[in-house]
Design a protein around this nucleic acid. Sequence first.
DNA 1: TGTACATCAGTGAACGCGCGTTCACTGATGTAC
DNA 2: TGTACATCAGTGAACGCGCGTTCACTGATGTAC
Lengths: 231, 231
Amino acid sequence: MTGSAKTPRERYRQQVREEVKEKAWQQIAGTGASALSLNAIAKQMGMSGPALYRYFANRDELITELIRDAYRSLADAFIAVGDGGDGGDGGDRGAGRARLAALAQVLRRWALEDPHRYFLIYGTPVPGYHAPQDITAIASEMMSVLLDACTAAGPDPAPGGEPHAFEGHLAGHREWAGSHPDAPPSALRLALAFWSRLHGVLSLELAGHFTGMGLDPALLFAAEVDGLTTR
Amino acid sequence: MTGSAKTPRERYRQQVREEVKEKAWQQIAGTGASALSLNAIAKQMGMSGPALYRYFANRDELITELIRDAYRSLADAFIAVGDGGDGGDGGDRGAGRARLAALAQVLRRWALEDPHRYFLIYGTPVPGYHAPQDITAIASEMMSVLLDACTAAGPDPAPGGEPHAFEGHLAGHREWAGSHPDAPPSALRLALAFWSRLHGVLSLELAGHFTGMGLDPALLFAAEVDGLTTR
DNA sequence: TGTACATCAGTGAACGCGCGTTCACTGATGTAC
DNA sequence: TGTACATCAGTGAACGCGCGTTCACTGATGTAC
């Protein structure tokens, strides 16, 4: 796929890089990203610490790479849903809403699959860290898929007649929806509600705030999805 | 208030403990909780590192104390709103909804006042850390205030006739609402929506996920509050 | 096919750092008679 | 009011640890003729 005709050395390099990242994820799963240690990874791979500097310039580069991979993985999962459904532009509202529901399920599965990976993206920000531009670009890809579905889900002509005040604000502040310059404000609002509500449930769930409460987080999640795709 | 007739030494002890915590918060604001260092705090106070062991058994005890204080502070802010409003039990729905909106504003102000404090409670969990029971008790106090308001806000008899499936689940899983054994399932659901939706917006906002998008998070927050207190 | 050279993966020693925590000790503050 | 003793805050040295990162070097792998 990417850059064919690799020399054996290049292939090996990439292979080792992958193994480093794999061990890094294992370590993050155990003690969190802030405790990520290059030396510990090296030891786990049976190498000496300095050897890793052949593959990553420093600790920060490794972490950035992990964040990038996490975003890429989630974006690909989103895109797969977008491709699977019918075109969208001509689809009826029902199809758009079904696609929204599918995106929600993909998001939840992805989050539960590896909570630490989820928190690497959406958790407490690392002080001083700023994502490079190519990572924000991946985030935009995801938003684009989401906006697709939200637009297809229907403009939801406000039953009362007057659109919500927030939609007025969005009509004038839509830089973030650059990929969909024609999406109605109600679709923009729906996308933001989708994102923030589902993140709210997921991050509380993954952080363990529901444990001991005796309720099933999956049902709360489903209820929120319902609220987003109904009416 | 708590334990009068302190000796001067006890008073001094408590004073130093407070100063330690104050410096700890400053440090957290700068580099996050995971980088909290006892030695650095001591240096900032003009003392040697080991001196702090007169006041805290170890680093973990200090962090637990900070978490406890954070919860206490938010709970007190919630309780102040609850006390301010009219009784509640007899109040009309409008009053309940106004109280919900007030709680939302208090939550947002509290979060913006010190984002790191917010993340200490609601951010990426520290691997292996389990909150002692007295802290979960404080969380219950908050939930109780919230349930008060949600109950007063009205049972919201489902317009379509059939209550949402999730409310059926809640009717049978309400241990977490122990303080309000008679609250209708719709009130329980409202409380969970309040908590998770507002947390969703706030945590995305505080983590900086809206920066560069060109929209005003305060308005998204307000729109979500609106959705919770309308209809 | 074989030799000469360049590339590059990995090692081990070392640097400097800051961490949490313990310990024996000094000196000030409070208490009892 | 003054003396004898107990309490406790704070110090400085020390222990052991792991971290990221650099450096000079060895040995294997690939390339050019």
